[in-house]
Every structure is written in structure tokens, then in C-alpha cells.
């Protein structure tokens, strides 16, 4: 098991290095250097120290040096927690990133839990009641869930709640708690706001999971060892939950890593409609205004989240499947 984790750790670090390279490439993709943008900005402001500032930045990012040197400089800063500077907000990226990443992680994990909690029982029901009325209903709704873009769900939910409750349901806090320090009341208020993004983001993932759980379980129910379990004289419930479901979970756990991108993607788009204090709105703003350090940092952070998530999913898989543990 230790050897297994060790191997996965090495491959995770390797992937992270590759991810950071792609992130760096994306930061450099827009035509012209990002300093041009900043320079233009400073010119407009007519700051007298513009040239000095530019020179300082050129030095900081080693823009006069070759590209690989720039990368090393950037990535070593990254490791130290120096992510560069947002030109749009004229602040250090690290000041902007942390808080929002925290909320992103919370919303993502809550959505993930939500979709699993909903999807597993439905998937099991559908598989054990194949082609029944209930199965058909669930199948139909999961198709709809797969087909509606999450931002549209968010939009409709906002409109409906405005109509019904007469109040906006966006954000993660009420106005009164927006800038208040953390307290029990603020936490309750947070939970009251959290469920909408969680449902919206979790919904599309839920539909996919239901389909997957249903398919897996149907395959497993055809396996010989399920028949063996029945032949022992076990009750159908034990056969299904102890012997079949346990095996049907593997592909799901394996797909955990793969469902994370969807959750993170979903939360970024939904966050715009619901105006959440997560990475989404800031990220897309940064992209639109070509504030590439900010955007690149967010992208790499999201990817790192995924890589770590995948790593955890691998370990979870090894826990549930002895074949992988002893590989």
C-alpha cells in the first residue's frame, strides 16, 4: 500500500509539473507580452514612475531572459506563494486567490457529496427495478439533467425564486454578513445560501452518476459471483448491497477523478449567474481583460485541485479494490 501511494505521489508531482508548463504557456499565449498591457495602463494614468515600474517588473519576470528561464522564475515564485501580479486589480495575485479558492473548494466538495448521495440510491433502485415505471421516470429525468446547461438552471432558479420569494438568492451570504467576521450566525447564513449552487452544480453530475451506477450494477448483477452469493442462501438485500453494490462502486470511484472537472467547470459558470465569491467570476473577468497572471494562476490552481482529487480517488480505489492494492 505504501509503495502504491509512493508511486502515485511521484506521478502526481510529474503531472503537476506538466500542468504548470501548460499554465505558463497559456499565460504567454495572448499576442504581445502582458507587460504591454500594463504599460499601456500606466501610460493612461500618466504615472511619472512608469518606466521604473516597468523595469522592475521586467526584472521580476526575467522578460529579457530566454523563455525557459522565465518559466523557472515563475514556477519557483509559484512554489513560494508568489503568483505574480494582477494588472487589472493592480494587486498581488495571492491576495486575490486564496479566499476565492477556499469557497470554490467548499462549493465543489458539497456538490460532489450531494450528487453522490442522490445518485447512488437512485442508480441502485433503477438497476434493481430495471424497466419498471420508477426506472423509466428516473432515466428520463437523468437525461434531462444531462441536457440542461447548469447556468440555465441557475438562471431559471433565480428568476423563479425572485418571482416566488421576491428576493434574490444569489451569492453565498446575505448583505448583512458580506464583510462580517465569521460567526455562528454567518455560518448559518452561509449554509442557507450554499444549497442553491450545490443543487445547481451537483445536478448535471448526478444525472451522469445515476446512469453510470445503473449500468455498472446491471453488469455486476450478471456476474457469476452474484449467483454464487444467492446459491449460498443469502437474502436478496445482502446479495445486492454486500456483494453487487460493493463491486459496482469501483468504476464510480475511478470516475470520481473524472467527475471533478465537470464539477469545477460547472461551478465556474454557475458562479457568474449566481454571483458567488468563488474563482469563477474573477477568472472569466481576468480572461476577458487578458489579465493573464491572474487567469493562469487560477487555471493552474484548478488543475492542481483536480490532480490532488485524482490522487485521492486512486487511494480510495485501492481501499475498495484489493486487486489494485496488490498490483
Amino acid at each position: 500500500m505504501t509503495a502504491f501511494i509512493g508511486r502515485r505521489l511521484v506521478s502526481m508531482v510529474f503531472t503537476m509539473v506538466l500542468v504548470s508548463i501548460v499554465g505558463f504557456i497559456i499565460i504567454n499565449l495572448p499576442p504581445g507580452t502582458y507587460l504591454d498591457v500594463y504599460r499601456a495602463q500606466l501610460m493612461v494614468q500618466g504615472t511619472s514612475t512608469a518606466d521604473q515600474q516597468i523595469q522592475a517588473l521586467e526584472k521580476r519576470y526575467a522578460l529579457d531572459k530566454p523563455v525557459y528561464y522565465q518559466y523557472v522564475k515563475w514556477i519557483s515564485g509559484f512554489v513560494r506563494g508568489d503568483f505574480g501580479r494582477s494588472f487589472q486589480y493592480n494587486r498581488e495575485v495571492k491576495e486575490l486567490v486564496w479566499n476565492r479558492m477556499g469557497f470554490t473548494v467548499v462549493v465543489s466538495i458539497a456538490s460532489l457529496l450531494f450528487s453522490w448521495l442522490i445518485a447512488l440510491p437512485i442508480g441502485i433502485y433503477s438497476a434493481t427495478h430495471k424497466y419498471s415505471f420508477g426506472d423509466n421516470i428516473f432515466t428520463f429525468f437523468s437525461f434531462i439533467g444531462l441536457s440542461v446547461p447548469s447556468f440555465l438552471v441557475a438562471l431559471v432558479l433565480m428568476v423563479v425564486s425572485s418571482r416566488v420569494f421576491g428576493a434574490s438568492v444569489g451569492g453565498l451570504f446575505s448583505r448583512a454578513y458580506q464583510d462580517a467576521p465569521w460567526s455562528w450566525a454567518k455560518f448559518v447564513d452561509f449554509l442557507q445560501h450554499l444549497w442553491i449552487p450545490v443543487i445547481v452544480v451537483g445536478m448535471s453530475g448526478t444525472a451522469g452518476l445515476v446512469r453510470m451506477m445503473r449500468g455498472n450494477l446491471l453488469d455486476i448483477l450478471n456476474m457469476q459471483y452474484v449467483q454464487t452469493a444467492r446459491a449460498k442462501g443469502l437474502s436478496e438485500n445482502i446479495v445486492i448491497y454486500k456483494h453487487a453494490v460493493r463491486n459496482a462502486l469501483h468504476p464510480l470511484v475511478m470516475s470520481l477523478g473524472m467527475s471533478l472537472p465537470g464539477i469545477i467547470s460547472g461551478s465556474t459558470v454557475v458562479s457568474i449567474v449566481l454571483s458567488l465569491p468563488t474563482t469563477g467570476p474573477l477568472y472569466f473577468n481576468a480572461l476577458r481583460s487578458q489579465d493573464m497572471f491572474l487567469a493562469g494562476t487560477f487555471l493552474v490552481f484548478m488543475a492542481v485541485m483536480l490532480v490532488v482529487g485524482n490522487f485521492l480517488a486512486d487511494i480510495a480505489l485501492a481501499v475498495v479494490d484489493p486487486r489494485i492494492r496488490y498490483e
Binding site: 456476474m223 457469476q224 459471483y225 449467483q227 454464487t228 452469493a229 444467492r230 446459491a231 449460498k232 442462501g233 443469502l234 437474502s235 436478496e236 456483494h243 460493493r246 463491486n247 475498495v320 479494490d321 484489493p322 486487486r323
Partner: peptide, 29 residues
């Protein structure tokens, strides 16, 4: 599914299958 039938299965009448590779549940010892 009755307990009487389950009491016969495995207890009085046991069965083994053709495919030894897939007859045992892979996740339990």
C-alpha cells in the same frame, strides 16, 4: 426469496459453477 428457500440453498443444496475465475467475489477474501 423466502427464508425457507434460503434455508435450503447453501444449507441442504449447494452449487458450484463452471467459471472458477468469476465465481468468487473479488473484493472479499
Amino acid at each position: 426469496h423466502s427464508s425457507q428457500m434460503r434455508g435450503i440453498r447453501g444449507r441442504h443444496i449447494a452449487m458450484i459453477f463452471q467459471e472458477p475465475m468469476t465465481s468468487l467475489n473479488p473484493v472479499y477474501t
